[in-house]
Amino acid sequence: MKPDTMDENLLGYLLGALDRDAQRAVEAHLRLHPEGRARLEELRQLLAPLADDADAPEPPPGLVNHTLAHVAEYQSRRLRVAPQPSRRQIGAPLRRGMRRADLAVATLILVLSAGMGMTWLARQWRDYRILACQNNLHGIWTALQVYADDHPEGGGAFPRVEVEPPRNFAGVYAPLLADSGAMSADVNTVCPAQTPRTPPTCSLTELDELARRRPDEFHALTRDLGGDYAYSLGYREGDELMGLRRDSGNLLPILADRPQTDGRGNSPNHGGAGQNVLYIGGQVRWCVEPTVGVDRDDIYRNLKNRVLAGEHQFDTVLGPSEATPCLGP
């Protein structure tokens, strides 16, 4: 083998870029040739500085959402507008029955094609909003993982709704994540299918202070802090209220589009068509029914049909921001 060729193969060997046969050939060469091993070490040194810049550049916030929007926008631009009927088609006097029939057919075609176009466009936008919403949930899941890393009990505990005020409502997950530094600024708790708005923010200290000094404002805030998403109210274990942890099980829902006011049926976020559900394991699924917990458990109500904490670990209840795990005094 020519020296240059061997150099190239040694480089590939160091990078793991060779196919299996070439890799074996280099290994055989290295066993027999001490000068090859020396050259390998030289090349290793040559590559070493590159490792100083090995960290992949961080993508800008919202890149996935922007990309999906870019594709959806392009698709909608390509949708053709139904052509206007020509003057000859509609302007001529309708003296005979056939002309009226032609006009009726033309009109029907126009209505149908416009209707189909609108339906297709509406479907594209609905799909985009569902995808963008899933992206939000993925972002929150990442924040939940960071939080769990800092709370190692049970392999990592997620934010827990408490029994007693002021941290006794589902939406408290947002300030808990934000205060711990787990939630980056680009994570959004507003569902993209809803009116764009900036959800209120509040530190835990401010929240405690507000509950003590201005209860009315505090109660108003509990309705908005969790954004458009419903978070786990936890479950009862004896007299204790337990929160979810990593070891609770990957298939347990932890966050979803918020439910209707009475907790029945699908979320209103996507027009009642269904809801995105985030599971502890990180999966996000679009579900057309709320019975997608363990054993077809309704994720918005407990076994007693109440929007309160679950009756056991696998009785999932995801409450809207203001929901509390226990009945008040």
Binding site: N250, G274, Q283, C287, V288, V292
Partner: peptide
């Protein structure tokens, strides 16, 4: 859009 009515499985799209 995929209809999801069963107990969630691990073999989701992300996998």
């Amino acid at each position: 859009m995929e209809s999801e009515q069963d107990v969630p499985k691990l073999d989701t799209l992300t996998g």
